[in-house]
Design a protein around this nucleic acid. Structure first.
Lengths: 345, 345
DNA sequence: CTACCTTCTGAAAGCCCTTCCATAGACCTC
DNA sequence: GAGGTCTATGGAAGGGCTTTCAGAAGGTAG
């Protein structure tokens, strides 16, 4: 029914091997034969059958990406980098949104299915040990984005450096009483941001009062959500602990909730409290958030490039790259009094 | 190298046909044989080869989705519905972000590749005629989301009804001088929202002043963007036309830009101007936007269900379903003075 | 003119699965 | 016990491609 290389071979009066060679730009074909085959293929509107090709080539030209929390801007932007890079290379992208551990494992199993995909990208999720072992043993290409494992390539943001820059920015503005609204410590970025925050304060000999460090107990999205930021701030405000002059908030989305909670008590940002957060998601500019920018698109792009290298040479030494986030100064820290948002931000 | 059904057949001392039957739960196998085969398969850690299966079954169990503008909340949320429904059915999803016409066509070609996917989902994009003809002729399953074509299933939001409800909401609040900030009329939703807006005002005998209807000339995202909303509002404010008491804005994201433009002139929402917009994207609640909610997740879910039906019976009559958006009253229209955003919104 | 290369080409094998077909064997029936 | 029916099974065919292999055709050298 559909046109195959056999049809072309018949029409062009050549063998199927020759057709295949022409279609794959093999050099060993005379240009007359080549032209004849090509013109027949065009005329019949031939399209190669993807799976038959994949089966014969042992190469599917598709990758899978496992991401948590579908509706999170961070992933979406990284994903955009992934998708565009992939497309330019002729690859396809299969997407799996994993909302919990079970789903993650289910998707990992799917991705390991022989021949299904050439490689797997994992975003922000901890790779379970048993899968790590299996991927390694079977030599399946795997790259981690915003996550880490000794045995696989990874691309991360330097949370340590980022939290340090953010904290020092507040210090440089004269703040000597700084609090933290953090996500859930189950998440590695939350751990790193906390640690760096505390070390930075210590290094500058700034005391940390009891009760100003707030690690979220939310589990949904590991506490990286507006709701978590909102309720954690409400909790803090009710705790009776004196309000610090500034807060470092572990993500933009939490910061939005934090600001809202403050607003309800008629507390203003940055007049009453300065805020610096982390991520630089698209909407952060609408809120005038001073934040640490992660090069999300580029991370996606690099992830794909690494993956392709890995596919071509599975035994390459493992590499890990860290992007250093950069400070974007807007209004919420008080340093930029006449911030008007601009498209370029 | 990798384990195949031949290995299992050999070990279990049966034929490959039997192995296949066991693996596919065919009933015609004695339970002893079945158990033996299963235990061998487990022991060898057998995984079927997806492409070989797809080739033999002529069924790939994967769909492709073509979406415009990757970083738009509307698509992301619909996509989430698509992805979760698909996963529960054992399907995979290939994602293509099309930023322009060329890319759209390239992706359509890819999706039509024989055997690559079982069906294609198109989001908010106008299907070019030549492709429509080809999809129809080749009987390739296609469903349109937020778009329409006579020959294919479609799932839409009733822009007509939505714009009517939004406009009437403003009228019911006593507004008699209402403006429109619309997206680019190249886009069908923009056309429909404009038409319905005007008809509704006429029906209520509310005059439309010169200059209060603003159709965007932005082409990026068809004017559905914060930048477009911002600059179109700035343009309006500079035009010298008297400010209406209320605006209907054709999307939330534009409304955010509109509000920002107003703020720069120290004009407040809803005190100086009331605003109702369209979409109910996630961040609209942070801005207290009164808006028309589209059931995005459900649209994705339904799109998949329709697709599966279509795959199973390509000659089913074409169906088109319209979701009616519902009004979400928050602060921006002035009707809900003490709006505090809530998680349930 | 023969022997030997090159170069190009056709066809078969292989990728791994599903499905169809034929048969062996068990079980009935008269 | 011959003939017939039914079930479980093995194996070939087929799905559409790539790649290997051997051979045909053409060219060169002796």
């Amino acid at each position: 029914m559909a046109v195959t290389i056999y049809d072309i071979a018949r029409e062009a009066k050549v063998g199927i091997g020759t057709v295949s060679r022409v279609l794959n730009n093999s050099p060993k074909v005379t240009s007359e034969t080549r032209d004849r085959v090509i013109s027949v293929a065009k005329r019949l509107n031939y399209q190669p059958h993807a799976f038959a090709q994949a089966l014969a080539r042992k190469r599917s030209n598709t990758l899978s990406a496992i991401i948590p929390f579908f509706t999170n801007y961070f992933f979406i932007e990284v994903l955009q980098g992934v998708q565009e890079t992939l497309t330019s290379l002729g690859f396809d992208l299969i997407i799996h949104g994993a909302n919990n551990q079970e789903q993650l494992e289910e998707y990992l199993v799917r991705s390991m299915r022989k021949g299904r995909v050439d490689g797997t990208l994992i975003f922000s999720l901890q790779l379970p040990d048993k899968f790590a072992a299996e991927f390694k043993e079977k030599k399946l290409p795997l790259v981690l984005v915003d996550s880490f494992h000794d045995d696989f390539d990874s691309i991360r943001v330097d949370n340590f450096e980022g939290a340090k820059i953010a904290t020092e920015h507040l210090i440089s503005l004269g703040h000597k009483d700084i609090g933290l609204i953090n996500a859930n410590l189950k998440s590695v970025p939350a751990q790193e941001r906390l640690k760096s925050f505390m070390q930075t304060l210590q290094r500058h000999s700034i005391p940390i009062r009891d009760g100003v460090i707030n690690n979220s107990s939310w589990t949904k999205n590991d506490g990286f959500s507006r709701e978590a930021g909102y309720s954690d701030m409400v909790k803090f405000l009710k705790s009776g602990v004196k309000l610090p002059s500034a807060f470092f908030v572990s993500s933009d989305i939490q910061a939005i909730g934090v600001i809202e909670a403050l607003k309800e008590l008629d507390l203003h940002v940055p007049e009453d409290v300065a805020i610096v957060s982390f991520d630089n998601i698209e909407i952060s500019k609408y809120f005038g958030l001073t934040t640490m920018s992660q090069p999300m698109y580029q991370m996606g792009e690099l992830a794909v490039k690494k993956m392709i290298q890995r596919i071509d040479a599975i035994d390459l030494p493992v590499s890990s790259v860290n992007f250093t986030p950069s400070l974007i100064v807007r209004a919420s820290c008080g340093a930029n009094k006449n911030y008007v948002f601009q498209d370029s931000n």
